[in-house]
Amino acid sequence: MKTIEIDDELYQYIAGQTKKIGESASEILRRLLLGDAAASVPETVEVITPESVSVVNNNIFDLVHKQDLQAESSVVGRFLFILSALARAHKKQFTKVLEIKGRNRLYFGRSAEELSEAGSSTNPKQIPNTDFWVITNSNTTRKKMMLTETAAKLGYTEQDAERIRDLL
C-alpha cells in the first residue's frame, strides 16, 4: 500500500463522499474514479456525511482509520488529527476540553493568544476544523494524558480512553 498526502479540504471532500460506515479512503476514491461497479458498493446504501456520522455514532473509532493515522508523519500531526476527530464526533460536548488543565498551564483554549499568555513555550496550534487551540510543545506522554482526559470528559469508558490514547 502506498501513502499520499492530501490537504484538509480535499480530505473533507473525500470523507463527505462516504456511502457506508467504515468505508476506507481507498474504497471511496476507487468508487469515485473508477465508477460504482468497480467499487462494489451497494446502490441502496444511504449517503452519510462526516457530520451525520458524528451524530449517528458519537464514536471516534468510526471516524479514525489506521491509514489516516499513518499518513500523519509526526506525533503532533497525529495528536491534532485525533483531537479533530473527537471534536467532529462530539461537537456539542467538545467545549469540555477547556476544563483540562495542568498545574500551571492551560492545555486547551479558544485562541493562540490565550494559551501563549498562560505559559511560556506553549507552541499553540489550532485543532483542524474547530475553533479550539491546543498546546503542542509537551512531550508524547503528556499528549497521551491529554487525549485520555479528553476522552473521559467526552464520556468514553476507561478502556476506550486508553484505546484513543494508544492511537497516538
Results as ranks from 00 to 15, higher is better:
Ile28His: 09
Lys101Arg: 11
Gly22Glu: 02
Thr140Ser: 09
Glu114Val: 06
Glu113Arg: 02
Leu154Gly: 04
Glu72Gly: 11
Gly109Asn: 00
Thr150Phe: 02
Ile60Trp: 00
Met1Trp: 13
Tyr13Asn: 13
Ala25Met: 14
Ser26His: 15
Ser52Pro: 03
Gln126Pro: 09
Glu23Met: 13
Met145Val: 07
Glu27His: 03
Ser121Cys: 11
Lys19Tyr: 03
Lys92Gly: 04
Arg110Val: 05
Glu113Pro: 04
Leu33Met: 13
Phe61Trp: 02
Val41Gly: 03
Arg31Thr: 07
Val45Gln: 01
Gly16Thr: 11
Asn129Thr: 14
Arg88Pro: 05
Ser54Thr: 02
Ile21Thr: 10
Val47Leu: 04
Leu168Trp: 00
Ile135Cys: 03
Gly77Phe: 09
Tyr11Phe: 13
Arg163Glu: 07
Leu63Gln: 04
Asn137Lys: 06
Ala118Gly: 02
Ile48Ser: 00
Val134Ile: 13
Asn137Leu: 01
Leu98Trp: 07
His65Lys: 14
Glu114Ile: 06
Ser74Glu: 01
Glu43Tyr: 15
Lys125Tyr: 08
Leu86Cys: 09
Glu149Ser: 15
Thr3His: 15
Gly35Cys: 13
Glu99Val: 12
Asp8Leu: 14
Ser74His: 04
Lys143Cys: 06
Ile82Tyr: 09
Glu117Gly: 12
Ile135Gln: 00
Val97Leu: 11
Thr3Glu: 15
Ala38Arg: 09
Glu46Ile: 02
Leu115Lys: 02
Thr122His: 00
Ser24Leu: 03
Tyr13Phe: 13
Phe81Asp: 01
Tyr156Glu: 08
Gly119Asn: 06
Arg105Pro: 06
Ile28Tyr: 10
Glu99Asp: 12
Gln67Leu: 13
Leu83Gln: 08
Asn57Tyr: 00
Ser121His: 09
Ser52Asp: 03
Gly109Leu: 06
Ser52Arg: 05
Val41Trp: 01
Ile48Asp: 01
Thr3Asp: 15
Lys153Gly: 06
Ser74Gly: 08
Glu72Trp: 11
Gly35Phe: 12
Val97Ile: 15
Ala151Asn: 03
Phe94Cys: 14
Asp131Gly: 11
Val41Glu: 04
Thr49His: 00
Thr150His: 05
Tyr11Cys: 08
Ile21Asp: 07
Asp68Met: 14
Val55Ser: 00
Phe79Trp: 10
Ala39Val: 13
Ile100Asn: 07
Gly155Ser: 12
Met145Phe: 07
Asp131His: 11
Glu72Tyr: 10
Thr122Tyr: 04
Ile4Val: 14
Arg142Gly: 05
Ser116Glu: 02
Ile164Pro: 03
Asp36Asn: 08
Glu51Ala: 05
Ile14Thr: 10
Leu167Trp: 05
Asn58Asp: 00
Lys144Gly: 01
His90Pro: 04
Ser121Pro: 08
Tyr11Lys: 05
Arg103Ser: 13
Ile135Glu: 03
